[in-house]
Design a protein around this nucleic acid. Structure first.
Lengths: 207, 207
DNA sequence: ACCTGAACACCGTTCAAGT
DNA sequence: ACCTGAACACCGTTCAAGT
């Protein structure tokens, strides 16, 4: 983590947080680290490669969070915590979050960032698989289910970060939107008249 | 639509399609229209304002598509067509699509782009409301439902456009992902052993 | 192996004029 | 009201050297 390369990545991360992507100028990054304005070219092919390195580092951190064990919790709880961690990351570092998913501009083909993204999704998929094992679930393919949840969380978070999530379009409460989806997939125990048929009640008992 | 202003917007749109956002340089736009490199400043406050104008124009077109009447079709069919239209737009014009939702960078506060975005979502919400009226649905708030569907479609489409949707993460088929969600919300008629209880069968009859 | 300084082409933006 | 040309500060990138 020491060495100029690591410090360049760290400086770029901080500039993303403080000023957005447009503030991440190779010259500003270099100055923050204390090297000449083109020293970064000894460590990264170009500006996009530096941004990709930042993204990869965050993806690895997300993967690790998704894989964290929580012994005293059921699978659905673990999944929800993971989702909330993801949301918290996006809210705290919107510019970096956007970087992870900003298409081929940054995501140089064949880079290790692709691997990191795959790894993060796999870890997420494992959480969904565990839910499917523990709860009475729908007959849907587990992979498709993970993809659906992942897409919804990302979509709702993107909408919030772009300022398009307002009260008037039912997206003001990110947690509520995610809960709505999860409750469609794994209906919760009967309560408040939400139970509409015996299947749901049986599912509730089986918890 | 004639006049330099309209032609600047059109030129910017084409540059977005052909070269991505980084290709939309005020100088390139001006040259495409045949004016001097800073004539755009007579029509737009700065580069972001021009991009916002492109986004607003696309949002208006989307609104209109969402409001299009389709007399011989049930509400769920109309909703699915609207979603597919949205997806087709994103696939055909990825850079412009991304522009619609790229946060406060482009979306100048107080601009009419905000209004256009609200209008587009309202039109979409009306389609969902019609579905709720026609089909036996869940007890969820209609606005929240529209928000959930909107977020999922956007999330799945974003993932596809950024190249993160692969077969291995269950997001390779955008239509399938959307169907999966819609079938959770409004269970389809019994078929292929998908019906699990009487509620679903009753719902099927009521179509 | 890593860094520096000068240089090039390009860009957003401003300003003083022009019609 | 709309446009032009020159100018400024800034940026990514390259290159010839330096240690």
């Amino acid at each position: 983590m020491e060495g100029t390369k690591g410090r360049l990545i760290e400086a770029a991360s901080q500039l993303l947080d403080s000023g957005g992507e447009s503030a991440v100028t190779l010259r500003a990054v270099a100055e923050a680290v204390g090297v000449s304005h083109n020293a970064p070219y000894r460590h990264f092919r170009d500006r996009n490669a530096l941004l990709a390195a930042v993204a990869e580092r965050d993806l690895v951190a997300l993967s690790r969070a998704f894989r964290r064990r929580r012994p005293s919790m059921d699978a659905k709880g673990v999944l929800k915590i993971a989702i909330m961690h993801f949301i918290a990351y996006g809210r705290a570092h919107p510019a970096r979050y956007r970087l992870l998913f900003s298409g081929p501009e940054v995501c140089v083909d064949g880079s290790s960032m692709q691997d990191a993204a795959r790894d993060a999704f796999d870890s997420f998929g494992a959480l969904v698989a565990q839910c499917k094992r523990e709860s009475e679930g729908p007959p849907a393919d587990c992979l498709k289910l993970a993809g659906l949840i992942y897409a919804t969380v990302r979509g709702a978070l993107d909408l919030e970060l772009s300022g398009h999530a307002k009260e008037r379009n039912g997206l003001d409460d990110l947690g509520a939107t995610v809960d709505l989806l999860l409750n469609f997939i794994w209906p919760p125990p009967a309560s408040l008249g939400a139970a509409r048929n015996s299947r749901e009640i049986v599912a509730a008992e089986s918890l």
